[in-house]
């Protein structure tokens, strides 16, 4: 994974999500040069608020009102893309987050609200339990099995680190979310979304021991 590769793919992902109106509001990830020649893509004003010990409602509201996200989906779900590379152009970290809205129904729950702009469509009683999703890549903190280099965290559980076989590209992250949690929208725009994005090769970082427990495989 290279800065150039991430850049290209992000651009394509943005373009697709805007075209299909899956992104209702967006900020393009900013690039910043780091000491020692590295580069960070997607730095946000609210660094690590999502980790602090506060309620999810507060986290969401804080991020939302401070524009601390990169893409907002029609139901208020927010995406964050952060990648850091060192001077050699080697990926040293990434953080890919999804913060669902705790107020609005999902597109699948209330499609008319989003597709027909129905004014009262959000007035629904039954609601699914929603949870944030995060893909982290951090080889510097690797502890065999306990802290895989690339891992998935569901619902802010402190010790939830499901091993992932390697770093996750922007497109793989977005498609994972759309297929599973926005399936109606995904199916409506399948043609556009299924097109091959600029290629980013997957570098396996998962260890033998980690392969022995339940883990995620990146798509090829």
């Amino acid at each position: 994974m290279t800065p150039q590769g991430v850049r290209q793919q992000l651009k394509e992902v943005y373009s697709r999500l805007i075209f299909t109106n899956l992104s209702v509001k967006q900020f393009y990830p900013k690039e910043q040069s780091l000491v020692g020649g590295g580069i960070s893509i997607g730095n946000l004003p609210l660094g690590s608020i999502s980790l602090r010990d506060i309620s999810y409602e507060e986290i969401y509201t804080e991020i939302e009102s401070n524009d601390g996200y990169h893409i907002k989906l029609p139901d208020g779900g927010m995406l964050v893309f952060q990648y850091t590379f060192d001077g050699e152009g080697i990926l040293t970290k990434h953080r890919l987050c999804y913060f669902p809205s705790f107020i609005l129904p999902t597109v699948d729950e209330a499609p008319h609200l989003y597709e027909n702009d129905e004014l009262y469509g959000d007035v629904i009683v039954k609601k699914l339990v929603r949870f944030p999703i995060r893909f982290d890549y951090d080889p510097g903190s690797h502890i065999e099995v306990d802290h895989p280099q690339s891992h998935l965290t569901l619902g802010q559980y402190e010790n939830c680190r499901i091993p992932v076989d390697g770093a996750v590209s922007p497109n793989a992250f977005v498609m994972f979310l759309l297929r599973n949690f926005y399936s109606r929208s995904y199916r409506r725009s399948k043609n556009k979304l299924d097109k091959k994005p600029p290629h980013i090769p997957v570098m396996p970082t998962i260890t033998q021991a980690e392969r022995k427990i339940a883990h995620f495989m990146n798509g090829r």
Binding site: N21, V24, K25, Q26, K72, L73, P74, D75, L113, D117
Partner: peptide, 10 residues
């Protein structure tokens, strides 16, 4: 030029 789509979430 950035744009947003007015909806329930914006």
């Amino acid at each position: 030029i950035n744009s947003e789509l007015a909806g329930v979430s914006t």
